[in-house]
Computed example of a mutant assay.
Amino acid sequence: MSSRAIVVDRPGEHRLVTGDVPVPGPGEVLVQVAAAGICMSDREVYDGHRDAAYVRYPVTPGHEWSGTVTAVGAGVDPALVGRRTVAEGFRACGLCERCRCGETSLCTGGYAETGFTEPGAFAGHLAVPARLLHPLADDADLRAAALLEPAAVIAAAVRTGRPRPGERVAVVGAGTLGMLAVQLLSASSPAELAVVDPRGARGERAREFGATDALSPDEARAAHGRFDLVVETAGAATTAASSCLLARRGGRVVLTGMFAPGAVGIDPVHLSLSQLEVRSVFGASSSAWSDAVRAFGLGLLDPAPLITHEFPLERFGEAVALVGGGDPKVGKVLLVP
């Protein structure tokens, strides 16, 4: 039996290869991939813009995925065979101080992550450590479940932001992360849930997921100092600074987007005078994954409407070109092996 996979040999160069199905080692499971999402991090890997410390070429990308366990290695419960599942991407050591404190996304044992330094899910099959699995319900929608990785990142942001019922909340950015944030934050019963995005159609779409208002960046300037909690998801050059301006004095800001060098800094004078609590999120801990999977199982989180395009592995080049291209009609792009 054979399996196909996309291999990015170096920036801008990829090939579709056919080889043997991976054999799960001790403590591992073999998963047949159902769907894998493409995000900006994958585009950065393909374009060569990802920090060299966080990628290892040649690599099979794919860190957002879902699938079904088809085999287990030594020491793994055979009852997992046939289970629908997702899995954490970070290969945390589980032994360092940060892991022991529950901060598995900050593992100091050395960076390793599915799809960046380890073979990812742009393939028919994937072997992963069983300890990273988050099994799903037997009837789970695997197409939608492929978005549980970004949902886990948002769950980490929501956990960090500590939303309380009746608060005024803003989400900056109406991409995949922003739309998932609206869904999770709406479950906290905010008095107001505004979305800030320059794309009017995206803002209006956010209303369907629970937003009470959609603001352009210009309109948002009139709302400076209004919000108890601001969750930034865009990672644009100015959104860290502008998110802090939206928060009230004593408010909370969570930075979730991945910023590139050259982003505008946050004004320290404003920080000190406003007594803001500013936190950032890097990936998702095991507990945040559990939050996202639980919300998905309860129906509080429905990523399926965010999917706009699906491609087979043969059309990877076309699929990755859509991501980050600026077309407002492009939402989440999936590869379906």
Rank of each mutant, 00 (worst) to 15 (best):
L245Q: 10
R168S: 12
A127D: 02
A157N: 00
A152I: 07
F227W: 05
R168M: 06
E208C: 12
A137L: 08
A201L: 07
T256G: 08
A157P: 03
R207A: 12
A247S: 04
L245A: 14
A220W: 15
R207K: 14
E204S: 02
G200L: 14
T212N: 12
A241V: 01
C244P: 06
V172H: 06
Q183W: 14
T256C: 12
A140N: 05
G203I: 06
C244Q: 03
G262S: 03
A127L: 05
G251N: 01
E208G: 15
A194C: 08
S189A: 15
L126I: 04
L255V: 00
L136I: 07
E192R: 14
V230R: 11
A241W: 02
A240S: 09
S242E: 14
L142R: 01
R131W: 04
V172Y: 04
V172N: 03
G203H: 06
P217L: 09
G166I: 03
V169R: 07
A155R: 02
L229D: 01
D141L: 05
R248A: 08
H125T: 01
S186M: 13
A237W: 06
G166F: 13
A137H: 11
A123F: 04
P119A: 15
R248T: 00
T160D: 14
A146D: 02
L229T: 00
M179T: 02
E219S: 11
F227E: 01
P198V: 02
A123V: 07
L246N: 07
M179Q: 14
G265K: 05
G235R: 02
V196Y: 05
V158E: 00
R143Y: 06
A222W: 01
S189P: 03
V158G: 01
D141M: 05
A157R: 02
V153Y: 06
V254H: 03
A206W: 05
E204V: 04
L148F: 14
S216H: 09
T238C: 01
A187K: 09
A220Y: 14
V254Y: 01
L133H: 04
D138K: 00
H224W: 08
R159H: 13
R159A: 15
R248P: 02
V254D: 03
A181S: 05
L136Y: 08
V172P: 09
P190G: 12
Q183K: 12
L177E: 11
A170N: 03
V182H: 07
H224T: 00
A140L: 08
G178V: 06
G120R: 05
G210C: 04
T238D: 10
A130W: 06
